[in-house]
Design a protein around this nucleic acid. Structure first.
Lengths: 152, 152
DNA sequence: TCTTGACCTCAAGTCGACTTGAGGTTGCAC
DNA sequence: GTGCAACCTCAAGTCGACTTGAGGTCAAGA
């Protein structure tokens, strides 16, 4: 497949494909003249990259997870820690989803004032805020990067 | 509370608080001299903002969801659609989490070659890639924004 | 043959989300 | 009443993730 074909099948613009290659996230199997040639599994890999992005990982992290080059030895501890991070995120998203759904048909004048909304989201938000939380549950796991994603 | 207190309790830098105020995500209740004064519920709101961010919403979307000003009339349909979007994301994250956990102790030389990993993530990634998917399930819901997050 | 279209490279531009810095003001401590 | 730490504004800078543009190469068709 040439780059246009990949772009068409994946929905990822050719410019992005070049960019990803440059960053080591994907690789072409070679060139035909000066044109890149990709093989079919690129589509799958692009799917995983997209997945990683919605999971909130940076391109650098994704490269690390997927193995930038011929899938070298992987840091399994890192995978577990990413999974835990994700687990944490999932809990929050579930609370947020429920909060949104509730807010959508809650009679309260403002959902900030609805006790149910408060409880749902407050729970999810606890642990996001650094300060004196009620300490109910799920604190301090995956504490690296933690405390918001105040990524530097 | 003054800005330093809020920063300390929330972990959000003062510069970010000013930035958020400028963007309409938060508001101070007034000034004391030229210093902003916040009341306590700001902490909760900051938690929700952080939550929205990990859910992948932009600041503009969050402002819309939370109501930028005194919680005006909210677009309930929008809330439902955000919730659906989130639901979709959650499914993907769950698959990714399971995929990562599996990969962490899978004997396959490369997890790209492990059939279980493939299945888990392939499933999640389906619908992310535009092209001829196996069409199993959960396609085309929340199709706005869809097709990756090729935002704009 | 020569033109066109699809690809190429490399540098620069854009956008969102912040952060940093210069220069100004205030209140409390001494 | 003076110093200074902690706030303020506003402009500019940074970073990640891309996109756009200028200028070049090449294979195929008129």
């Amino acid at each position: 497949m040439d780059i246009a074909e990949v772009a068409k099948r994946s929905g990822v613009p050719a410019s992005t494909l070049r960019f990803y290659e440059e960053k080591g996230l994907i690789q072409s199997v070679g060139r035909e003249g000066l044109r890149r040639v990709f093989n079919a599994n690129i589509l799958e890999r692009l799917g995983l990259i997209a997945l990683g992005r919605v999971a909130g990982f940076s391109l650098a992290e994704i490269a690390q997870i997927l193995g930038s080059k011929g899938t070298p030895n992987i840091d399994r501890a890192m995978l577990v820690s990413k999974a835990d991070e994700l687990d944490n995120t999932i809990q929050k998203l579930i609370a947020m989803r429920d909060g949104l759904r509730h807010a959508a048909d809650c009679p309260a004048p403002s959902h900030m004032e609805c006790p149910k909304f408060q409880r749902l989201l407050g729970l999810a938000a606890s642990g996001m805020i650094k300060g004196e939380g009620t300490e109910k549950l799920s604190n301090k796991r995956h504490s690296n990067k933690a405390r918001y994603q105040t990524r530097q």
